Computed example of a mutant assay.
Amino acid sequence: MQENQLTFGVHDPTIIEEGGNYYLFSTDTGQPKTSGVPIRWSQNLRDWNFIGQALPEVPKVAEEWSSATGLWAPEIVRYRDEYRMYYSASTFGSTRSYIGLATAKSPQGPFHDQGLVVKTSPVLCHHNAIDANVVTDKTGKQWLLYGSFFGGLYILPLDNETGKPSVSGFGKCIARRPESVDTAIEGGFIYYNPKTNYYYLFCSYDSLNDSYNIRVARSRYVDGPYVDCKGHAMDDLTHEPDDIGMKVLGSYHFSGEKAVLAPGHNSIFKRSNNQLFMIHHARRKVFSDEFFLNIRKLEWLSNGWPVVSPCLYEEDCKQKLLGFAGKWHVIYFDETNGTQESLLEMIEDKDYQKISDNEFSWQGSLVKTWLEMVDGKPQQVFSGMTSKGYGIIARKF
Rank of each mutant, 00 (worst) to 15 (best):
G323Y: 12
F50A: 01
R177G: 06
A132G: 14
Y390W: 12
V10F: 06
R283V: 06
D334Q: 08
H265V: 08
L101Q: 00
Y83D: 00
P157E: 09
F170P: 00
V374R: 11
G115I: 09
Q319V: 12
D12T: 09
I15W: 03
P306W: 06
L116G: 04
A262V: 08
S90D: 07
P107C: 10
R80I: 07
V260D: 02
K138P: 13
I51N: 02
S309D: 07
R218S: 09
E314N: 09
Y191I: 06
P56T: 09
E315D: 12
K138Y: 15
R215E: 05
L293F: 06
H232I: 07
T29L: 08
S106I: 08
D131T: 08
K270S: 10
F291A: 01
Y192A: 07
W143R: 02
D113L: 10
S121Q: 11
T91C: 09
L261G: 01
S365P: 02
N274W: 09
R176Q: 13
L71S: 00
T91Y: 08
V374A: 09
C125I: 06
L301Q: 05
L101D: 00
I39L: 02
S88D: 04
P13R: 02
Y146T: 05
L298M: 12
F92C: 06
A325M: 11
H126G: 15
T336K: 10
H329P: 04
T238W: 14
P263E: 06
S106G: 11
W72Q: 00
H112G: 08
T183E: 15
E372S: 12
G389K: 06
E345Q: 13
M346Q: 15
L124Q: 15
F333P: 00
H126A: 14
L101Y: 06
E315F: 07
M385P: 02
F291W: 12
A259N: 06
L144H: 05
I331H: 01
V227P: 01
T27Y: 05
D235E: 10
D137W: 07
V181D: 03
M85H: 08
F277N: 01
N213P: 06
L343M: 13
V381M: 08
S251G: 11
R80H: 14
Y252T: 01
L301S: 05
K195Y: 13
R176F: 06
N213D: 14
P56D: 11
T95N: 15
H280F: 11
S90N: 10
N133Q: 15
Y199R: 04
S272W: 11
D334R: 04
L145Y: 07
C173Q: 13
E335K: 15
L249Q: 03
L153W: 04
Q142S: 15
F254K: 01
S365T: 07
L322V: 10
I76S: 01
W305R: 00
M234K: 00
P38F: 05
D210S: 13
G304Q: 06
C203M: 13
I39F: 03
Q108K: 15
Y83V: 03
I15E: 00
K377C: 10
T91E: 11
A89H: 01
D159F: 13
